[in-house]
């Protein structure tokens, strides 16, 4: 992105990371990407009782160019998928995606010809939020988790390092099928 990605590894970079993370997480601007039932819950989250303004993100942006978070709220049809990708491409970096609801996360109960079986086929997803539709509290929880993720995100060489480590950890991880006991 900018100059911060060019910083050498070390004390300076980690300080900038913390500052950038803190600033970024405190003013996340979501793009309106309401699709179906979840969009209504997303609007409810922004309205009086749940009041997303408490986390500094009640202003849903009409234009993707002014947004850095896309909340994919609802089922994504095959016809909508190219539009969704276009909106994602128009958002400036850094950007994050919350896949809200089971339909966006995996196709949910609509395992059929019309629905994309998980929005991660189209855009990279940071947070998967289950529920049909998720309650506003769940959406806020997902947003807070995303804040955490943004706060601790790395920059420049550190980001490359972190991506490499995550990839290696994923390759070594125990497959779900071999896990024993209660899966919590």
């Amino acid at each position: 992105m900018g100059l911060e990605e060019k910083l050498p590894s070390g004390f300076l970079l980690t300080t900038v990371e913390q500052a950038a993370g803190w600033v970024r997480k405190s003013s996340v601007f979501p793009a309106t990407f309401g699709l179906a039932c979840c969009a209504i819950e997303m609007m409810t989250t922004g309205a009086g009782r749940y009041d997303l303004a408490r986390f500094g993100m009640e202003v849903f942006r009409g234009s993707p160019r002014q947004a850095d978070l896309m909340i994919v709220a609802g089922r994504v049809s095959q016809k909508m998928a190219p539009v969704l990708r276009q909106v994602y491409d128009q958002m400036p970096n850094p950007k994050w995606v919350i896949s809200m609801g089971v339909c966006a996360s995996s196709g949910g109960m609509f395992n059929n010809y019309a629905i994309v079986q998980g929005v991660d086929h189209v855009v990279p997803v940071d947070i998967y939020l289950p529920g049909c539709p998720p309650r506003p509290e769940m959406l806020m929880d997902a947003i807070l988790k995303l804040h955490q993720k943004i706060q601790t995100s790395k920059l420049g060489v550190n980001a490359e390092e972190a991506a490499r480590e995550a990839e290696e950890a994923a390759l070594k991880a125990l497959p779900t099928i071999e896990m024993k006991g209660l899966l919590r």
Binding site: L35, S77, K79, M109, F110, N112, I115
Partner: peptide
Amino acid sequence: IGYLHTGIEKN
């Protein structure tokens, strides 16, 4: 229209 076609009738 059709951007939210879900195929419910088929399902």
